[in-house]
């Protein structure tokens, strides 16, 4: 994607969001979410420059926000971001075995993306689904009562769906 493409896209997203908002100056995070959704799980670094011009916010402040929040990434991530819960309720109900299974099946560690660009593995803080722990989210979909076997089923289901498309 060229710098010009990013400029056009980010400008459109920004204008769209500022049109819906009641307040000015608080829309940076919402805009970043929308940009990330648009590009599929990451924010091209060039977007910061465009936002600087659009909002008048210093570049340093934009980088600050972009890098502070764990959900924003400036690196391209997989089509499916697997976010496995590392909190205590999951830990005491077999969470480590689930994490090990994910690493084994995907053959990647935390923060890494599979070679085919399908999956990125991340850890997350509590997902609030402790009643069915251990849990993970794949993009916006949550999966509970996980076991290493169930993890393997879920991942293989996605892989075979992707292959058939």
């Amino acid at each position: 994607m060229s710098v010009e493409d990013v400029r056009v896209t980010v400008t459109r997203i920004y204008e769209d969001i500022s049109g819906q908002s009641l307040e000015e100056g608080d829309i940076l995070i919402n805009t970043l979410h929308a940009i990330q959704d648009h590009y599929g799980n990451f924010i091209p670094i060039e977007a910061a420059e465009v936002l600087k011009e659009l909002t008048g916010t210093p570049l340093s402040k934009i980088y600050e926000v972009l890098t502070f929040y764990t959900m924003f990434s400036t690196h391209k991530r997989g089509k499916y971001v697997v976010r496995v819960c590392k909190s205590l309720p999951c830990h005491v109900t077999g969470g480590q075995a689930v994490i090990d299974a994910l690493k084994n099946i995907l053959e990647i560690g935390f923060g890494e993306t599979t070679e085919d660009g399908l999956f990125t593995l991340e850890e997350t803080s509590c997902l609030g689904l402790c009643g069915v722990s251990p849990v993970m989210m794949i993009n916006d979909e949550a999966y509970g009562n996980l076991t290493p076997e169930r993890v393997s089923e879920i991942i293989h289901e996605i892989v075979s769906r992707e292959r058939s498309e």
């Binding site: 100056g25 608080d26 940076l28 600050e64 929040y69 764990t70 959900m71 997350t124």
Partner: peptide
């Protein structure tokens, strides 16, 4: 307003900063 994965934003003044579009 949607958070972006920072536990500290549950602290009230951090949350306010986050709504203001800051760290």
């Amino acid at each position: 307003r949607i958070g972006a994965g920072a536990f500290v934003c549950g602290e009230e003044t951090a949350l306010i900063n986050s709504i203001e579009g800051k760290r």
